[in-house]
Design a binder for these strands. Sequence first.
DNA 1: TATGAATGAGACTTCATTCAT
DNA 2: GATGAATGAAGTCTCATTCAT
Lengths: 203, 203, 203, 203
Amino acid sequence: MARTRAAEIAREVTGRELLGAALEVFVEKGYHATTISDIVRAAGVTQGTFYLYFKNKADIFSALLEEYRTLIISGLFDVDVASVKTRDDWLRLSDRIAGFLLDHIKTHGEFMRLFIAETTTIGSCFVDEANAFSSGIMREICRLIEHGICLNLLRDIDVEAVALSAFGALKEVVRQSCFDEGTASAEALIPRVIRSQAELLLK
Amino acid sequence: MARTRAAEIAREVTGRELLGAALEVFVEKGYHATTISDIVRAAGVTQGTFYLYFKNKADIFSALLEEYRTLIISGLFDVDVASVKTRDDWLRLSDRIAGFLLDHIKTHGEFMRLFIAETTTIGSCFVDEANAFSSGIMREICRLIEHGICLNLLRDIDVEAVALSAFGALKEVVRQSCFDEGTASAEALIPRVIRSQAELLLK
Amino acid sequence: MARTRAAEIAREVTGRELLGAALEVFVEKGYHATTISDIVRAAGVTQGTFYLYFKNKADIFSALLEEYRTLIISGLFDVDVASVKTRDDWLRLSDRIAGFLLDHIKTHGEFMRLFIAETTTIGSCFVDEANAFSSGIMREICRLIEHGICLNLLRDIDVEAVALSAFGALKEVVRQSCFDEGTASAEALIPRVIRSQAELLLK
Amino acid sequence: MARTRAAEIAREVTGRELLGAALEVFVEKGYHATTISDIVRAAGVTQGTFYLYFKNKADIFSALLEEYRTLIISGLFDVDVASVKTRDDWLRLSDRIAGFLLDHIKTHGEFMRLFIAETTTIGSCFVDEANAFSSGIMREICRLIEHGICLNLLRDIDVEAVALSAFGALKEVVRQSCFDEGTASAEALIPRVIRSQAELLLK
DNA sequence: TATGAATGAGACTTCATTCAT
DNA sequence: GATGAATGAAGTCTCATTCAT
């Protein structure tokens, strides 16, 4: 029925507007400082409407996080480990990852920043989301390193320790890119950080 | 005067109690979720008393951060870079740093946890504290690496990028040690992470 | 839309109720002694509701003052100076002013009382309101006296000084009418005070 | 005993200091905005000490008012009505009163201002003090006018009404002198206002 | 007398959430 | 589905006052 259809669309639209507005406000003021009132004002709807779509602030934030996880993980899955054969492939791969990250920061940096900031807080209700995210990336990194070892490209290393280091390095450089004022220099560092980690691992 | 003396002591004691209680509650519930009311309850004093000692929640949190910075920086200054001469010295130094960190986590893990968690929040009033802290540590790491290069111990590397990586690695492994459920295994990782980073850098 | 209409009415009603309740409580206890809590209790709404309508206590007080200014100024503009030609007109005019004031006290005495009492407090945020009010009335009085001089009805006088005196006289007699226990006698004085001032000025 | 004597003096001194400090703070911030804490800080003593001398804020304010009443009433009693015989005496007397007021405003203007402001507030605990003061002055004015009528100097007037007017005029001119920014011009008005009132009354 | 730490009542204000329309 | 007025709990903060020393 056209009626139901229209209603569905309306529902979809308002929901989208709320999510968009929420993202905007969260990014600007942080999770704790934003109020439902801020969100609905930004979305151009009223208080009551909010509760037709979300249970509360945590609920809409979770929804945003979920969207984000989907987004970045599909991005990471595009990286094709199998095609790496030689030393040069290895370096090229690291450059490609750096490129992906840079692009991602440029297009979704605000979101990334929000995510990093709000999920590491003590008492955060989003620990599960954060963990899912971290372990997803760690898995990728491990897979990469193990593949390199199989090919006899890499030095004799403590895989787990090295993967953890690499993850920390990534996280920190991203953090700096997202948070620090002098973003430019921090962004410039990303390829260098990833490249130098890659080189250190090579035989 | 005896009375003045007594008052002085009382003042000192209550101030300590408030700081201690605040640390405890902050660590348990996080900065945003803890209320002044929580703190005074834990300290065994009344609301009014709190305001004799601190302006507000941010003020007592700042006081805690400051205490912590003093604590850890004095610990780091004990590391004697000059005595490092050979490859073995280098590895021993890295072990010593790992040891220091482990001890530190055991004795002041709460502080560390609180610090790491709460200073990366968007809209945090503590960005300056966080940056002061980070750059202090980065400086130490750079000094170490440059010293190693001077001695011709280390490979040809991008110092800034590598120092940033090392810092990120440290931070992540510490974070996992402080936060994750299976703390034991995470703690076990600290020496391995630091050691493997050190080895990668060696020629 | 019916709902919007209902909401509009509700909004209007509650706002009126708050203003009315505030006037009542302010008059009874004075500005400083009344709390928001008093006002909302008198208005039959809850604390939160108050803040949907006014920023704080000073805000609702300002709103009251503004209402009052509008009220009395429109009353004063009704006085028609131009029609005064003879000695008798002059005396009749003074009687008419006295009548207006008496009526005003009877119908809006609370407003007047509140206004007179609370706008002379040191540190009052309402000095501007008070001055606007005073100079408005002073202007009227000067206009009156100058008109009388033009017509050669009045003695040779220091207009500014006399207008100031007349204003002070008015204010004091009104004050006594509003505040003193034996209001009756004080009210009786108003016509006598105004009349005797008028006679003193006549040649 | 010297001991007791010294103690008495000490008591006197601290009490004076508190009164002086209180006056200063009251004048600066007004009655309601000043706290006990402000007063003791200004006096250089501690909270506890205050309560050895005064019951509460109203108590110390009352003490100040009482001091002030004594001061001004003794000033007014110096005016010698009996010596007025002629028309010129009458004008000279009015000039003398104006002079006294001007001097008084110059030396105790702050106090006057405080007094005027805080005793006319609704719910003021100082109504009695204010009334005692007003009726004292009214009595003087009536005495003056009646004396003038006895001497056949003055026109045929409604004594009560005229006295009230005169009192109001005085009060307003004083108020303007004390409160308004352009004090200079207001002060200049005092002699003119009093003089013109005196002249209007003369036959 | 003087101190000043401690109290605790109470004021102000915000905000998530509900509900009648 | 949308509205937005109303709620009321909960938090922040101030200050007059007490009391052990």
